[in-house]
Simulated assay, not measured.
Amino acid sequence: MTILPTAPAPATLREPAISRLLFADPRLAPLWLLLRLYVGHEWLSAGWGKVTNPAGVWVGEKAGAAVTGFLNGVLVKTGGDHPDVAGWYGWFVENLALPNAVAFSYLVAYGELLVGVALILGLFTGIAAFFGGFLNANFLLAGTVSSNPLLFILATWLVLGWRVAGWWGLDRWTLPRFGVMEHPDTVRADPARRPAEPVR
């Protein structure tokens, strides 16, 4: 009988105590709630303003008009010795975004709205924050500063703290259904299912 060699157990990287405290400790959930509500409010306000715009330049009869004007402004920023917009992003705007301005208009308006609602409710917080940060990154690449740097930083923090950022929100009950984390009531009731204390 041949005994096959067993593969070595994979190395486990220990999470530093400060990282666990900041990004996984429910005691900091109130802080994450405030951060999440602020970012969610910013996105909800921006998206709601676009969706309900009376001129219909984002969604409606004239959808794409606002995006077309914005993107044409982006192309102007690609010239000169020190352009505000990188050449590759200008290519993307000219060849992909502008020809599909109507689709991008709906994506931006409803994307902002959905990110805001998800963050305020604490539903799939990490995913919502990721897409919010993705929108911020695109606005920054397009040469628009405004509140985008701050929101991008806060979105990055929310992505890092996804385990606790939605603790005071729907994630606390939604994520266990997807097997992402234990339901808090189950862990409290069954000591055997509580995470083991790390070896010091």
Rank of each mutant, 00 (worst) to 15 (best):
L154K: 00
P83R: 00
T2H: 09
L44I: 00
L123I: 06
R177G: 12
S147P: 03
L160Y: 08
S147F: 01
L170E: 07
G79N: 14
R200S: 15
M181F: 14
F104K: 01
R172C: 03
T144G: 02
W162L: 13
A17I: 13
R200W: 15
P198L: 10
L75S: 02
P10N: 03
R193E: 13
A109P: 05
R27N: 05
V67T: 15
G166P: 07
E15S: 13
G47L: 08
T125Q: 04
A118M: 06
L37P: 02
S19V: 12
G56S: 08
A9R: 15
P54L: 10
G49S: 13
V199G: 12
T186A: 14
M181E: 15
P16A: 06
G122R: 03
E112L: 04
G73C: 00
G47V: 05
L135V: 10
F134K: 08
A65Q: 15
Y38P: 03
N95H: 14
N100C: 04
G79R: 13
A24Y: 11
W43E: 07
T12Q: 13
H41R: 05
P26F: 11
A189D: 10
I153M: 11
F130S: 05
S19Y: 12
I127F: 13
T68A: 13
T125V: 03
A46Y: 00
R172F: 04
L154T: 00
V39W: 00
A46Q: 00
A65D: 15
L31F: 09
W173A: 09
A196L: 15
V115Q: 02
L158D: 07
A86C: 10
E182M: 12
D185H: 12
N72L: 08
L35R: 01
L71G: 03
A29Q: 10
G90K: 04
V180R: 13
G40Q: 02
A97I: 06
F104A: 01
L175R: 12
Y110S: 03
A192L: 15
W48G: 11
F23K: 11
P16R: 06
L4H: 09
N100D: 07
I120R: 10
L28Q: 10
L119R: 00
N136W: 03
L113N: 06
I153A: 14
V57C: 06
P191H: 15
L98T: 00
Y89M: 13
G80E: 02
L107V: 01
L71P: 02
G56H: 08
L158S: 08
P99I: 00
G73K: 03
H41C: 06
F139K: 05
Y106P: 05
A118Q: 03
F104L: 07
G133Q: 02
R188P: 03
G60E: 01
T174N: 14
